[in-house]
């Protein structure tokens, strides 16, 4: 089996660019959890890391919004944000066009996905890479689910995208790691920035870790917006990882509702054994 790792993590820019607003012990516990996840990925010796982000108008806008997109290039560039603002230096990140093309072709058997021969990485991908692969040596395949511009990708289709990615990973000889990045409840970049519905988050993560597909797909967008803010729409990336893991169970390695970081900071890993 060529699927070697599946997990989830937060990507909020505040985790990097507002680091000083959180006490060191709490911040370091989160950073250590990212480090542990990074080691777990490297221990599986993947050839590529597929990063399913919920990007924020870095590449995709309402003039031509794909429900799903995957990168198909030998390199990408990021962060698109101002380097001084995000506090992550702009760089090229290696891709693997040939492998991307084979994965995308297989995914297309099940899910219509836009392919992208260029991609400007925003914090949805750059913040996780900053912690997980700080030497940026592991090539990536960026992927995206529309969590921003309604009508949003339906939750059951996000799950199906994960299933298609799993079968694509199993169809190629390379070793594939896949992560989903996003927030759970949060109200990013709005007057409610910093608000977190911890009870809602913990309930969602219990559904995720339990591999409870029906429970994960039962949210309506209206209820998510009411309880978890527009940032809650990003549960799609976590749900896709549940689809990758095929109803296996996962483990939440870290959860801490850190208001200055504007999200319940999460690290979770699926048990693929």
């Amino acid at each position: 089996m060529a699927l070697v790792f599946a997990g989830i993590c937060s990507h909020a820019p505040g985790i990097v660019n507002r680091a000083e607003r959180v006490e060191a012990s709490r911040r370091e516990a989160l950073y250590d959890a990212y480090g542990r996840m990074g080691r777990a990925i490297r221990d599986k010796s993947p050839d590529v890391l597929v990063v399913i982000g919920a990007e924020h108008f870095g590449n995709f806008f309402m003039n031509n919004m794909p429900a799903f997109a995957m990168g198909m290039a030998d390199y990408y560039e990021g962060p698109i944000e101002d380097e001084g603002w995000l506090k992550i230096k702009r760089r090229r990140v290696a891709g693997n066009r040939d492998l991307s093309e084979r994965l995308i072709a297989r995914v297309m058997d099940e899910v219509d996905v836009a392919y992208c021969e260029e991609w400007k990485l925003d914090h949805a991908i750059m913040v996780p890479l900053h912690f997980l692969t700080p030497d940026y040596r592991l090539p990536i395949v960026p992927a995206n689910i529309n969590c921003q511009g309604p009508p949003l990708t339906p939750l059951h289709r996000a799950y199906r995208f994960g299933e298609a990615l799993r079968r694509a990973a199993e169809a190629v000889p390379e070793r594939i790691a896949i992560i989903g990045t996003g927030g759970i409840s949060h109200w990013p970049a709005t007057p409610n920035s910093g608000k977190i519905n911890e009870a809602w988050d913990r309930d969602f993560l219990a559904r995720w870790a339990g591999g409870d597909k029906a429970a994960m797909l039962s949210y309506s967008d209206a209820a998510t917006y009411r309880d978890a803010g527009q940032g809650g729409f990003e549960i799609r990336t976590f749900i896709a990882i549940a689809g990758v893991a095929a109803e296996r169970k996962g483990e939440i390695w870290h959860y801490d509702a850190i208001s200055p970081f504007a999200v319940g900071c999460t690290i979770g890993v699926m048990n693929l054994a």
Binding site: F57, D82, P188, S193
Partner: peptide, 20 residues
């Protein structure tokens, strides 16, 4: 959308707390 607006604010040199 705040995901667009916060970058416009950053471009203009508006600090995070002032943006909120």
């Amino acid at each position: 959308n705040g995901q667009l607006l916060m970058h416009f604010a950053a471009l203009l040199g508006i600090a995070w707390d002032d943006y909120l």
